[in-house]
């Protein structure tokens, strides 16, 4: 990361030691543990990990979108366009949300409000962030719908969400998230709820939009195949921690964390079914009740040794722009990233 950055310019978004803890009646859930990463302009950062590994909570914590209480968000800093989002006021955060950082969620069926027209829902951000009048917002909304490939946009703008198909609804969501020309787009499993063919179309659309608009994208998924197809860099998350990070081609060529290795070996040769979850590894992910203090993968790792159960491994550099959090790497003489 910072030690030998593959990018010359400074990151758009820089997250340091982010921690999110949920206080529940049964105890604290350590959903995000000391997560650090950078996002550079124009890249697509893939975030993979099985369900419950803290991908969504990490990204929503950045913008204060997790309900608090129960959530408690801490960390060193989240630098974005000259401000630290962890220390920003509610007002400043609202300015960033939907303005400079756009969000797309998993389920387009439920993510749109059923009682308002898509035009109304699109205009809301435009009026709020860009101070447009109703008329301006309307014509801009039509442009946005055209941009995301909705035919007959001028008429469809007064339709309600239930009048669109799933894929079309996700296009509306994308249009909404891009409304104010954000520099970062966070897409939280945007294709998981869709049919395979629609999935491919949405993927293509986002890739295309990135070329046109040049924003950086964080693409969350539990599907390694999707990540391989779209991401420039990849973060692998496990039990609320980043266990491996690297440029996509390096990471796939030389997976260095036992969890990543297991993940890659369990991806079936035949792709194309969304039932393909990353859970065919022996054993179970740890419950997040125990405070971090050991390697989260130690309970399932074939190469586990004593130290794994006593300390949290730091992120060791595998090669330039590629690191993994595993003591085995340290044994092999790799050094820690700073």
């Amino acid at each position: 990361m910072a030690m030998n950055p593959p990018h010359s310019e400074s990151p758009v978004l820089s997250v340091k030691d982010l921690c999110t803890v949920f206080s529940t009646r049964d105890g604290d859930i350590h959903a995000v543990n000391s997560v650090s990463f950078d996002l550079y302009a124009g890249e697509i950062l893939g975030v993979v990990g099985e369900s419950g590994s803290g991908k969504s909570v990490t990204m929503m914590s950045l913008l204060g979108l997790v309900p608090s209480p129960p959530a408690n968000i801490n960390g060193a800093s989240v630098q974005f366009e000259g401000q630290d989002l962890l220390r920003a006021t509610d007002r400043q955060l609202r300015q960033v949300r939907g303005g400079r950082i756009g969000f797309i969620f998993q389920d387009p069926m439920t993510s749109l409000n059923p009682v308002f027209t898509v035009g109304f829902q699109l205009s809301e951000s435009l009026k709020r962030h860009l101070g447009m009048t109703r008329k301006e917002a309307r014509s801009r909304s039509i442009e946005l719908l055209e941009l995301v490939g909705i035919p007959d946009a001028g008429r469809r703008i007064s339709d309600f969400p239930h009048q669109f198909s799933g894929g079309m609804r996700q296009r509306v969501m994308i249009a909404m998230s891009l409304a104010c020309d954000p520099s970062v787009l966070i897409a939280d499993e945007p294709t998981t709820a869709l049919d395979v063919t629609i999935q491919a179309q949405i993927l293509e659309l986002i890739r295309d939009l990135r070329h046109k608009l040049g924003m950086a994208i964080i693409w969350i998924t539990h599907d390694l195949g999707v990540v391989a197809g779209i991401a420039t860099r990849v973060l692998v998350m496990y039990a609320g921690q980043i266990v491996e990070h690297g440029r996509a081609e390096k990471l796939f060529a030389n997976p260095s964390h036992p969890y990543t290795k297991a993940l890659i070996s369990t991806v079936p040769a035949v792709r194309g079914h969304r039932a393909k979850r990353l859970n065919s590894i022996e054993g179970q992910a740890p419950t997040l009740y125990a405070p971090p203090g050991f390697c989260p993968f130690s309970s399932r790792c074939a190469n586990v040794f004593d130290r794994c159960r006593q300390e949290v491994p730091g992120r060791m550099q595998v090669s330039s722009g590629h690191d993994a959090a595993c003591f085995l790497l340290e044994e092999q003489g790799h050094v820690a990233t700073s």
């Binding site: 609202r94 993510s111 709020r128 909404m176």
Partner: peptide, 15 residues
């Protein structure tokens, strides 16, 4: 707790 409420917040709307 509906998803569309989260979407509304993610748009930066006032509470």
């Amino acid at each position: 707790n509906q998803d569309f409420v989260r979407t509304a917040r993610a748009k930066g709307l006032r509470e």
